[in-house]
């Protein structure tokens, strides 16, 4: 079967004065037409670098794409010429960034910024592009589109600016939309608006979305499939239901355990993941999560685990899924009644 986007064994390093940082290590995934895939991970996990490489946004130097392939509609993007990339960027793949203030041009009216892509990619005349741009402004739910067309970014609020970004990204009807933490800079009530809008537009246009976030709530509400990244590797990939109900990687367990429960009135202590994320200058020899993992075995510190296929759509990079490993119960369940509390420190 042909996937819309297929990333295989991607390796990206950055050369710095301190040495070479291994930002992305052996990452493989795919995105199908019309699907919403979320990538979750903490700062430095490599999630942004992964998607920036799809758009060809990794500055080289200092970035070095060490290997792997990124195929979009069967075409290899890593070896595409600048000219070929230009046809893909903004037209077939759109991107929304975290901070709408720094990603819009402050000296240009927003209408022109939306029309820009239409003129370049769809060869529309200035009048046609303006008409389409006003239509886009309306479509993303900004009132008074004609008036707003002529305003500058500073005249918009944060939520409105992010709507403008969405309008720019979707203007050329892309097949794939990459949203890098689109709601992180926004207040909750505004975040709810923007997420509703993205869901609605996704339904209408059948655009596939890669959503990058660190908020597991946003993932649960929008994505069909989820990939969890840690220390430059993809530790788990599953459908959203499997990830929340039957996660197979201790890092995913840790993430789910460290968010407070909104339901119910009883208070239980949060179970944090002790320690801090790995130093990517010299990542641990084995699994990057092993030094913080409560379940780490000898082999975890020595050898990087393979990608264990749990079922068709679920895989986890953890030695615990090996048939020879001791059986470890997931330290909690979603229903609070059945919560198994793992005493503060460690279990054996």
């Amino acid at each position: 079967m042909n996937h819309l986007l297929e990333v295989n064994n991607l390796e990206i390093n950055f050369k710095t004065y301190g040495g070479e940082v291994k930002a992305v290590r052996d990452v493989s995934f795919h995105v199908d037409k019309g699907e919403v895939v979320a990538i979750v991970g903490e700062s430095g996990s490599g999630k942004s670098v992964t998607v920036q490489s799809i758009m060809g946004l990794i500055p080289t130097p200092p970035g070095v794409i060490k290997g792997g392939s990124i195929k979009f509609q069967g075409k290899e993007l890593l070896r595409a010429s600048k000219r070929e990339m230009r046809k893909v960027k903004g037209s077939k793949i759109g991107m929304i960034f975290q901070d709408p203030m720094t990603s819009l041009n402050p000296t240009m009216i927003v209408g022109k910024q939306i029309a820009e892509g239409l003129i370049t990619h769809q060869k529309l005349s200035k009048q046609e592009a303006k008409k389409k741009a006003i239509e886009m402004i309306k479509q993303v739910g900004i009132p008074n589109p004609e008036e707003r067309y002529n305003q500058f970014p500073h005249e918009f609020s944060g939520g409105m600016r992010q709507r403008v970004m969405i309008a720019i990204a979707l203007a050329c009807n892309p097949e794939l939309l990459i949203a890098d933490e689109p709601t992180t800079a926004l207040d909750v009530t505004i975040q709810a608006q923007v997420l509703e809008l993205m869901k609605k537009l996704q339904k209408d246009t059948q655009t596939a979305i890669i959503l990058i976030t660190h908020d597991l709530g946003v993932v649960a509400e929008t994505a069909q499939r989820v990939m969890v990244m840690y220390g430059g590797i993809m530790v788990e990939s599953a459908t959203v239901f499997d990830l929340f109900e039957n996660p197979k990687h201790p890092y995913t367990w840790g993430l789910l355990n460290s968010i407070p429960n909104l339901e119910g009135t009883e208070k239980k202590q949060l179970i944090p993941i002790e320690g801090s994320p790995p130093d990517l200058f010299s990542p641990p020899k084995g699994c990057p999560f092993a030094p913080r993992c409560k379940y780490a075995m000898d082999i975890c510190l020595e050898e990087m685990p393979g990608d264990y296929q749990i079922d068709e759509s679920h895989s986890a990079r953890c030695w615990l899924n090996d048939s020879r490993a001791p059986k470890v119960e997931m330290p909690f369940t979603l229903e609070k009644e059945k919560t198994v509390t793992v005493g503060g420190e460690s279990i054996d």
Partner: peptide, 10 residues
């Protein structure tokens, strides 16, 4: 407006 962390509730 808080996103719920249960996908079945979404």
């Amino acid at each position: 407006a808080i996103p719920k962390t249960n996908p079945r509730d979404a």
